[in-house]
């Protein structure tokens, strides 16, 4: 080490704070305490917790996108999806467990939006964990009263003649919006279509991505 160097003495880098290094909050300790007590009582195991966390990690809007793309290319599947959402997503290997899934279809005349005014009910098996704004006071309060204003905040402007329907979810019944297939996607494969389907378009606050522009 050179004496004329700015750093003549071996300096310690500030330790990278790990999650474990920041002092826990009371509520984090409460989670730990409850979990350890329930495991000690044999109500479930640590392995059960790990497996459950793995299932959460496997749930994402990618699954919902597959459901929507299948409905776009297969009219018979779409009919089954609208008739019984839970059963139809199970066909694609997505278990809804005990919650009922109701799929609502956007058409040129009707645009659907989902909300949970009372808490945060959300179609997790097909969309994963909800974004923070879905659980926010502002979204929950206003979506049922002024949905067009809320949609505008997401950059979504609907023509005046479109009927906006808001669906308030419950603990036992979850909604999923089936967006309209974007124009100009007639020749696209199902897998490519699935990539146009965004999470927000399945909540109903926005529309799917436009068809990619292809070279002439």
């Amino acid at each position: 080490m050179h004496a004329d160097h700015d750093h003549v003495h071996p300096h310690r880098h500030p330790p990278q704070p790990d999650v474990e290094d920041t002092p826990s909050t009371y509520y984090q300790r409460l989670e730990e305490a409850v979990r350890e007590l329930l495991i000690a009582k044999g109500i479930f195991t640590g392995e059960d917790i790990r497996r459950t966390l793995e299932i959460y990690d496997s749930q994402s809007p990618v699954l919902g996108g597959k459901v929507v793309a299948r409905a776009w290319v297969d009219p018979a599947y779409k009919a089954r999806l609208l008739a019984d959402g839970s059963k139809a997503v199970e066909e694609l290997g997505i278990p809804m467990d005990t919650t009922k899934l109701v799929v609502v279809e956007n058409t040129p005349a009707v645009h659907n939006v989902i909300v949970c005014t009372l808490c945060s009910c959300y179609p997790r098996p097909v969309l994963g964990l909800p974004p923070d704004w879905y659980k926010s006071r502002n979204y929950r309060s206003r979506t049922v009263r002024e949905p067009r204003a809320v949609l505008a905040e997401f950059g979504t402007q609907l023509p005046d003649g479109v009927d906006v329907r808001v669906h308030d979810s419950t603990a036992d019944m979850r909604y999923l919006v089936l967006p309209m297939r974007p124009a100009g996607t007639e020749g696209m494969e199902e897998a490519a279509l699935a990539e146009l389907v965004t999470r927000d378009s399945m909540i109903g606050v926005s529309l799917p991505r436009a068809a990619p522009v292809t070279a002439p």
Binding site: T117, N138, S141, D168
Partner: peptide, 14 residues
């Protein structure tokens, strides 16, 4: 039970 009450803009927080 806040459905329909006045509230502020939706911040697109994640």
């Amino acid at each position: 039970d806040m459905g329909g009450l006045p509230a502020g803009p939706v911040e697109p927080t994640e």
